[in-house]
């Protein structure tokens, strides 16, 4: 078992013997091969691994975007294994924030509207006010009415960060948040992400190739071939 937990009793992610098999019945591919992981509330965890190691799949399972083929997944008090796709979507509202490498903003909506969407889905009364504040917090208070096509890569990722954090989630999953950015912008985004994580006391799981970024987190986990190889303090 590769489970590292510190002594904090408040565990926000508890995964036991996680298996994930994809592909067809004739040609199944086992991506995750029995993973155990605990993440404490407020902790920042970096996940390192080569391409195809299963780190994005791990994130998909823990964020409720993918159903595990086997094992137990408890996130923010929800038993993900017992929920169907729609229930997982509902569970994510207000509890899970996700930031992706390619930003994935809605192209037909402004920055403000993009950030407001998860708030509206979660039923927030003052969605646009809250969105406006969140964008100001990431330094884009002057870009509220801009469309994604009118923003630079770094600005788009900042909007994505604001969108993920606007509902005040308990845990944030970030998959290669700086993967599509140049060096200087990557650094800015990394700083911003970690700063906002500390400010909000959210838990952070960060997938990255960047070892330097990984070591800025509380803990670093390395995945090789669908298994956690080792875990160490960041």
């Amino acid at each position: 078992m590769h489970m590292l937990s510190d002594d904090r009793s408040d565990i926000i992610v508890r995964a036991r013997n996680i298996r994930l098999t994809l592909g067809s019945a004739q040609a199944p591919v086992e991506i995750l091969k029995g993973l155990d992981l605990d993440i404490a509330r407020g902790e920042s965890v970096a996940v390192l691994g080569a391409s195809g190691s299963g780190k994005s799949s791990l994130m998909a399972v823990l964020s409720g975007l993918e159903q595990a083929s086997g094992g137990e997944v408890n996130v923010a008090g929800f038993d993900f294994g017992a929920l169907d796709e729609d229930a997982l979507a509902i569970a994510r509202r207000g509890h899970v924030g996700i930031i992706l490498q390619a930003f994935h903003l809605l192209p037909t909506m402004t920055a403000l509207e993009n950030v407001a969407v998860p708030l509206e889905l979660a039923g927030h009364e003052q969605a646009f006010d809250r969105a406006s504040k969140e964008l100001a917090a990431v330094g884009l208070g002057h870009r509220l009415s801009h469309y994604p096509s009118q923003l630079s890569g770094g600005e788009q990722q900042r909007v994505a960060i604001a969108r993920a954090m606007a509902p005040d989630p308990e845990i944030i999953f970030a998959d290669e948040p700086t993967g599509n950015l140049d060096g200087k912008t990557s650094e800015l985004i990394s700083d911003l992400l970690l700063k906002r994580q500390k400010e909000t006391e959210a838990t952070l799981m960060l997938i990255t190739h960047d070892r330097a970024l990984a070591e800025r987190c509380d803990r670093v986990i390395e995945i090789v071939d669908g298994r956690i190889l080792n875990a160490q303090r960041g």
Binding site: R92, G94, I98, L100, L106, P118
Partner: peptide, 16 residues
């Protein structure tokens, strides 16, 4: 497709 997947990530159900 990507927008729909994004909505799902943000918490939209199939009914939404």
């Amino acid at each position: 497709q990507r927008s729909i997947a994004t909505f799902k990530i943000l918490g939209a159900t199939s009914a939404d």
